[in-house]
Each structure stands twice: as structure tokens, then as C-alpha cells.
């Protein structure tokens, strides 16, 4: 080891401590102002969507809670998640508030399409949040849905399972540079040496999203809190989505390689033991210090 051997002088630190305190405070203030600047910038995107404050606040609540199913566009997914844009129910504030608080299930017809899904209750939202999201959803009702639903099931081209697996595990990069699915997820035969991962197992995701159309629409703008910052400016292209959905659709039929010993932990532990073994060998050559050797010569 080549460490210096100085002693730390004690005392006479009070002036430097004062200086440090002042400097720390100044930088804290600088940090706070940088932070509020950033927050203002991020809410300005919501402001574009809405004219007044309540609607703007509602847009943020919507993005966090509703966009996962009803989509960031509010157009929903045909046959799976009803659209809010152009939906007359969305203009009915009481109806929307009731639905947000208590959820909704059973058959429902919106713009000529019948839905039969289940919406969870969002009763844990604060009264303010509910009021603002009701205002935002109300603003969607007046919009023109002629842009069409975000996903038309008939327009989806069949994806390729093998291509989808390559994209999923990152062997082929996503065109816009988004993270490979396998960074965080396991699915089907892509099993990650034992299967633990940051995100959920996606083997049954097609079923979870009410069919391939549902998953396809969701992947168009993934709205979970973890995924949205990653994919907001790195959208997965429609062809990639088709391939990934094909792979995930096939995933339940694939068998995951069995890995009962959990390969990662075993490999890590083995490497650790090798390192310790190397140290033990090196120690034999350095056991005697120079002083000890000099003494032993006497």
C-alpha cells in the first residue's frame, strides 16, 4: 500500500467551517432554483394541451393514471380501452367523477363499438386531482375523433416471432435507441438466469392487455412511470411493436430454460472464490516484511 502517513491537525477549523456552511447554503439555493426551473419547463408541455389551470393540472394526473389504458392521445384502443376523445360521456362531469372514484365494469358502447372490460377504482386520488382530471377529460370530449383510433386492429401487420425475440433481448437494437425489453423484463424463453428482473414477467402480457391490439396500442406510447421517461423520445416503431407483440403472443407456449441453481449467483460466487484464492497465493509471497527478513538474518 502506498498511503501517506500524515496526521490530521485538530483545532483552528472554525473559520473554514463557517466558510463551508456559507458555501453550502449558497449552492443549496442555486440547486433549488435550478430545480424549480426544470419543473416549470416540464409542466409547460401540459399547458399546451389545456387552456386553464385546472385542465393543465388534470393533464398531469391523466398522464400518470389514465394514459396507460386510454392512451396519451385520449383515443383509447379500439375494442379494448374506450376512447375519451369525442366520447359524450366524457363531457358529463358527474359520470366521469363517479367512474374515477368507483371504477366501471361490464358492457359499454362508445362511438358504436362495444367494450366489456374492467376499469379499476382510482379512489386514492385526492379530491383536487379528481376535480382537475374531470376537467381535463371534459376537454377531451369536445375534440374531433376523426384522427381515428390510435390502433385499428385490422391494420396491424403480423409480426415475426424470431425478430421479436431478437428485439426483446437486445440482439437487435430498437431503431430509436430505446432500452431492450430484456433489460427489465423476462418473457417466454428469455429467462435471465433464474428469472428475477426489475420489471414484471411479460409472458402473459398479451392476455393482460386484452389481446394483441391492446398491447400494440400500449407499446405505441408506454405510459408506466418507469417506461414513459425512457420511451417518450425514443418511440418503438410500428414494425418493431408488431414483432415484439408476436413474440410475446407466442411466449406462453415457449419453455423457459430451467435454471434451478440460479446461474448468476453461482457464477458470481465462483468468481469471488477465485479472487480470494488468488489472494491467498499472493499472500504467501508477501508474508514477510523487509524488517522481518532483516531480523531473521541475525
Amino acid at each position: 500500500m502506498t498511503e501517506e502517513n500524515d496526521t490530521t491537525p485538530g483545532g483552528t477549523m472554525s473559520r473554514s467551517r463557517l466558510l463551508i456552511g456559507v458555501a453550502g447554503l449558497a449552492l443549496l439555493l442555486a440547486g433549488v432554483s435550478a430545480q424549480t426551473g426544470g419543473a416549470a419547463a416540464s409542466t409547460s408541455t401540459a399547458a399546451v394541451l389545456a387552456q386553464d389551470d385546472a385542465v393543465a393540472a388534470g393533464a398531469a394526473v391523466y398522464a400518470d393514471n389514465c394514459a396507460t389504458c386510454h392512451q396519451a392521445t385520449g383515443l383509447g384502443i379500439v375494442g379494448t380501452f374506450p376512447p375519451l376523445v369525442g366520447n359524450p360521456n366524457a363531457a358529463d362531469a358527474e359520470y366521469v367523477e363517479e367512474t374515477v372514484r368507483n371504477g366501471l365494469s361490464g358492457p359499454l358502447e362508445v362511438l358504436g363499438v362495444t367494450y366489456n372490460g374492467e376499469m379499476a377504482s382510482f379512489s386514492d386520488l385526492s379530491d383536487d386531482d379528481i376535480a382537475s382530471v374531470v376537467a381535463f377529460v371534459g376537454s377531451l370530449a369536445d375534440r374531433d375523433p376523426s384522427a381515428g383510433p390510435s390502433t385499428d386492429p385490422d391494420a396491424i401487420e403480423p409480426g415475426d416471432i424470431g425478430e421479436g425475440r431478437d428485439l426483446f433481448q437486445g440482439s437487435n437494437r430498437l431503431d430509436n435507441g430505446g432500452a431492450a425489453c430484456a433489460s427489465c423484463h423476462v418473457a417466454g424463453e428469455v429467462g435471465n438466469l433464474g428469472g428475477w428482473s426489475l420489471g414484471p414477467d411479460l409472458t402473459g402480457s398479451v392476455e393482460t392487455f386484452g389481446g394483441e391490439a391492446g398491447l400494440t396500442g400500449w407499446l405505441g406510447s408506454p405510459a408506466s412511470p418507469t417506461m414513459s421517461p425512457i420511451f417518450d423520445d425514443k418511440a418503438i416503431t410500428p414494425n418493431e411493436i408488431a414483432d415484439i407483440v408476436a413474440f410475446l403472443g407466442d411466449a406462453p407456449t415457449q419453455s423457459r430454460p430451467s435454471d434451478p441453481g440460479d446461474g448468476l449467483i453461482l457464477a458470481g460466487a465462483a468468481g469471488f472464490l477465485v479472487l480470494l484464492g488468488g489472494m491467498a497465493i499472493a499472500w504467501r509471497g508477501m508474508r514477510q516484511t523487509y524488517a522481518e527478513r532483516l531480523r531473521s538474518k541475525r
Binding site: A182, C184, L193, W196, L264, G268
Partner: peptide, 15 residues
Amino acid sequence: IAVGYRWGSFWGTSV
């Protein structure tokens, strides 16, 4: 994290 939230070297680049 290495054991329970795989794979840090992979998702870390996006998070």
C-alpha cells in the same frame, strides 16, 4: 440490485 433487479448494466443505461 445485481441479484434482485436484473440487469443493472442493461437498464442502467436507460434509467
